[in-house]
Design a protein around this nucleic acid. Sequence first.
DNA 1: TTTCAATGTTAGTGTGCACTTACATACTAC
DNA 2: GTAGTATGTAAGTGCACACTAACATTGAAA
Lengths: 195, 195
Amino acid sequence: MKPGDTRDRILVAGLRLFSKSGYLGATTREIAKLAGVSEVTLFRYFPSKEKLFGEMISSYSFLPALKGLVPELTGMEYRDALCEIAKRYLERLHERKDLIRIMHCEIHRYPSKVKLIYHNFIDELVKTLASYFRELRDEGRVRGFDPEIGARAFLGMLFSYFNAQEILLRRSERHEERQRMIKGFVEIFVEGTAA
Amino acid sequence: MKPGDTRDRILVAGLRLFSKSGYLGATTREIAKLAGVSEVTLFRYFPSKEKLFGEMISSYSFLPALKGLVPELTGMEYRDALCEIAKRYLERLHERKDLIRIMHCEIHRYPSKVKLIYHNFIDELVKTLASYFRELRDEGRVRGFDPEIGARAFLGMLFSYFNAQEILLRRSERHEERQRMIKGFVEIFVEGTAA
DNA sequence: TTTCAATGTTAGTGTGCACTTACATACTAC
DNA sequence: GTAGTATGTAAGTGCACACTAACATTGAAA
């Protein structure tokens, strides 16, 4: 067993259990068990539960969700581009579901760190999408709405949908319904912002 | 001190502290102290912390947020009506902020009860708003989009805004910014759904 | 074969918290 | 005044959990 491997397994187990039971609800025993190590080993790697939590949050920050996507979009039709953005965004949210849960529930525990991560995530998204809208606006392909508000509106529709389905109601996500919602949202948004 | 008064004060204190610290983080000592009673009295009214939590959730369910509003809207201009809906919705969310936090974080504790309350809340909102859209559509004042998807899109934009501002970042909400966001969202939505 | 690092096992300690028991006090109704 | 009801105070129980100490085991490198 390579060194580093154990540490990672503990971090992954922490992510899972902190997400499922909350910081206080997840016990070090459970985390160690899920990681397949003894509880003592957990404390050899992380001097306290609090430190484990901190390291976990830091190491599992969000990947850029949309960065690098914009260039690919410039040639596409507006409607198709928005569908693509929506798809990617929902995929990223789905991947980071556990982390999102934790940040929602434990934001009071590590206010500055969690807020920073969250803020950066939202900012990156909004700015990326807003810059895309600004580009289109300069080409006269959409009307002159505020790009940031537009970005927040679009991402907000999607986030709420994700939140209701996957975080709160924990439904099995049905692919076809998701497609239908995306199409509906995009439709409204396209009509609402077209030139 | 009337009977019933004490019980209520404990429930209110429970709401506040469960919201702030989570179910496990809030102690019965703290709750009793905030309610201005001794811890023993708390246990005289509620046989366990779990029961207190359950009673609290049940008694503080959501009030209908938009019901009864639709009739008032029928005479109004579409844009103004949406602004009014947005304003009311955000006000209701603001009032029930603590409860919303709890439901987000503790949904795994009382899955069926919490889900039911939450589901009913969303359903009431979506159905009310969708019926308004359907009415307009029948009069030919908006185009033929799916009223339910439209409702989810509109409420979703607003909810995400509320969530980011008040639940996660706990910002002092600046009234003017809120107005600006509402206007921007409504603008996009109106253009996106107008006939 | 020896050595060393990573991990396990066992058996703790101390603390905070939900919850209890026993008894005291204040106030109200009769 | 007496009885009863709501509340308080003091003290404590038992348990789960974060965290520790001491020693055993394994496996690979030298």
